[in-house]
Amino acid sequence: MNNVNSRLRRARKTRAKIAELKVTRLSVHRSNGHIYAQIIAETGDKVLASASTVEVEVRKDIKNGGNVAAAAVIGKRIAEKAKAAGITSVAFDRSGYKYHGRIKALADAARENGLSF
Rank of each mutant, 00 (worst) to 15 (best):
M1P: 03
M1N: 11
N3G: 10
V4T: 10
N5C: 07
N5L: 10
S6Q: 11
S6K: 12
S6T: 08
R7Y: 05
R7E: 04
R10V: 04
A11R: 06
A16L: 12
A16M: 11
I18P: 09
I18R: 11
A19D: 07
E20T: 07
L21R: 13
L21M: 11
K22G: 03
K22E: 01
V23D: 11
V23K: 13
T24L: 09
R25I: 05
L26V: 12
S27A: 15
S27H: 09
V28E: 10
V28L: 15
R30V: 15
S31Q: 07
N32P: 06
N32D: 14
G33K: 15
I35Y: 06
I35M: 14
Y36T: 13
Y36V: 09
Y36Q: 07
A37F: 01
A37V: 06
A37Y: 02
Q38G: 03
Q38N: 05
I39Q: 01
I40W: 02
I40R: 01
I40A: 02
E42L: 11
E42I: 15
T43P: 08
G44H: 02
D45E: 14
V47W: 03
V47T: 15
L48A: 08
A49P: 02
A49I: 06
A51M: 01
A51W: 00
S52G: 13
S52C: 10
S52P: 10
T53M: 00
T53L: 04
T53N: 02
V54S: 11
V54T: 14
E55Q: 14
E55Y: 09
E55M: 13
E55G: 06
V56C: 13
E57G: 10
E57S: 15
V58M: 06
V58G: 02
V58H: 02
D61T: 08
I62P: 14
K63G: 12
N64I: 09
G65L: 00
G65Q: 01
G65W: 01
A69C: 07
A70G: 06
A71K: 06
A72P: 07
A72Q: 11
V73W: 01
I74R: 04
G75C: 09
I78Y: 03
A79Y: 00
A79K: 03
K81V: 09
K81Q: 12
A82D: 04
A84P: 08
A84Q: 12
A85Q: 10
A85Y: 05
G86Q: 04
G86F: 10
I87H: 05
V90S: 02
V90E: 01
V90P: 00
F92N: 05
F92T: 01
F92D: 05
F92K: 03
F92H: 07
F92W: 03
D93F: 00
Y97P: 12
K98L: 13
Y99G: 07
Y99L: 13
Y99C: 09
Y99W: 06
H100F: 12
R102W: 03
I103A: 08
I103F: 03
K104D: 10
K104N: 12
A105F: 00
D108R: 05
A109Q: 11
A110V: 01
A110S: 13
R111G: 03
R111F: 07
R111K: 14
G114H: 10
L115D: 00
S116M: 12
S116A: 13
F117T: 01
